[in-house]
């Protein structure tokens, strides 16, 4: 589906990921973006495969999962509105570390990481802003993963 540029920019600007970016930064992002509307069960990308797009979830939810031999497909995180998925493409070789599947009807902004990287290389100021934003996203996810690792709901029976 196509969307005219002003509407796409408006949509991008309303996401938490893009909160506080300058108009100029937004335009650079917008040039690399396209709108994606997919039904539930749609696989955005698969673990181990190369993928060029980075997705900003606008509405709906995306299940990130990893295959564990003998245990099947284990969901590790559900991403929702405002979340960024598939950022491996932006900072490494684009080989995805998890599989992303929509769990309901999703509207996503797909950004071409090739294009974004080029923009960043050409405009280090934009590169800095974008990478800082990305670092914040990853850091928040790391904290959440740590809390998840703490297994805070684990039953702790009294000593006996």
């Amino acid at each position: 589906m196509t969307l005219d540029a002003p509407n796409l920019l408006k949509m991008l600007a309303s996401t938490r990921f893009a909160e506080g970016l300058t108009h100029q930064d937004l335009q650079s992002l917008g040039r690399a973006a396209r709108l994606l509307e997919v039904p539930a069960g749609h696989v955005l990308f698969r673990e181990g495969q190369r993928e060029d797009a980075v997705f900003v979830v606008f509405s709906g939810h995306v299940r990130l999962s990893m295959k564990v031999p003998g245990r099947g497909d284990i969901t590790i995180l559900t991403a929702g509105p405002g979340d960024l998925v598939g950022w491996s493409g932006l900072i490494s070789d684009g080989i995805m570390t998890a599989t992303a599947t929509t769990t309901d009807f999703c509207r996503l902004l797909a950004l071409s990481s090739t294009q974004l990287k080029q923009s960043c290389d050409a405009d280090p100021q934009l590169g800095y802003v974008l990478m800082k934003r990305l670092a914040q996203v990853i850091s928040r996810r790391l904290v959440a993963t740590r809390i998840q690792l703490l297994d805070v709901f684990a039953e702790r029976r009294n000593h006996s």
């Binding site: 497909d73 969901t75 998840q148």
Partner: peptide, 16 residues
């Protein structure tokens, strides 16, 4: 925190 494919809700901590 943990779920298999049959779970329709979210996976992740409440802060997320």
């Amino acid at each position: 925190d943990h779920a298999d494919e049959s779970w329709r809700g979210g996976v992740g901590v409440v802060t997320t």
